[in-house]
Design a protein around this nucleic acid. Structure first.
Lengths: 149, 149
DNA sequence: GCAAAGTAGTTGCACCCTGGAACCAAGTAG
DNA sequence: CTACTTGGTTCCAGGGTGCAACTACTTTGC
């Protein structure tokens, strides 16, 4: 599965994919989380929390952290007044996480900045091609789901 | 530039883009650098070095590290026998970095694994759409270059 | 009921990676 | 020759992570 001939689409794809990821700075994404002073994990966390109250363990799973790291992550968010730990009425061990108003505002800012950046990116694609670019990304996302479900 | 109406292409693009990045695991890329035991920075470094001898500072720039971190990074690569620091004949201060045979082999493995994964991804895209997906990524890469050149 | 086993979360510890500052060696400008 | 710049290294501090041990609570089984 790994020896492919010269200009195969697969080789071309790998090349352009890597170019894209590097060019867009996805590898050093840590550098610009987006405006407010926070780590990528924190930014990821508050945007996940926008959806609604979650158990801490679930949040950790979504963000890709162990439970100790998640605990400390939430400590930080709580200290900044962005999130509250509410006791779960159904389970005395668990804590439900809820964004405060301020936290919701900060999370909104992160999402908005990201959308702005992506809008600017899309604006640089010729208008006639934009739908096809979106469709291609959708196909790729779908293809990724087939691979590791 | 940030208030867009309902189902605009920009909103759709942001959504599918984020889905793609998350789904493909680009954010937690640290987890699977690719086979051999190394950090993403190290993997990035040895693949960059495949091209040819570089000054340490240039490598750091490419990988996105400061000079102290780069120095330690190269220490590690050297200790594992993947790279040699050769004195630059034209500048007594500088060191040229050259991959050893073993290092070239390791770097090749990283590139090959990545290509394999991307091949698998592309294989999951309907054959008729593959060229258009590649073209779309090319357009996006180009669009990114226009933004931050 | 009640003890045993499992689960949610916290804390202590060690480790890795990073940047900034101080430093050394070598090139460059006057 | 002296001052300044530049490539790298080392020292130090800080952030982020996981693992293991621990607490508090819930669930299971007898």
């Amino acid at each position: 599965m790994s020896d492919r001939d010269g200009g195969s689409p697969h080789e071309e794809f790998a090349e352009v994919f890597v170019d894209f990821v590097r060019g867009f700075g996805l590898l050093d994404a840590e550098t610009t989380p987006c405006g407010a002073p926070m780590s990528t994990a924190e930014a990821h966390a508050i945007t996940v929390l926008r959806a609604g109250g979650l158990h801490q363990g679930v949040l950790g799973e979504r963000v890709g952290l162990g439970k100790s790291s998640t605990s400390r992550l939430v400590d930080g968010l709580e200290q900044r007044g962005w999130v509250r730990r509410v006791p779960d009425p159904d389970d005395g061990r668990a804590r439900l996480l809820r964004l405060t108003d301020k936290g919701r505002e900060v999370a909104g800012g992160v999402v908005r900045r990201r959308a702005d950046r992506l809008s600017a990116l899309l604006d640089n694609v010729p208008a006639a091609r934009r739908r096809s670019v979106i469709e291609a990304l959708r196909l790729l996302t779908e293809a990724g789901r087939l691979d590791a479900p």
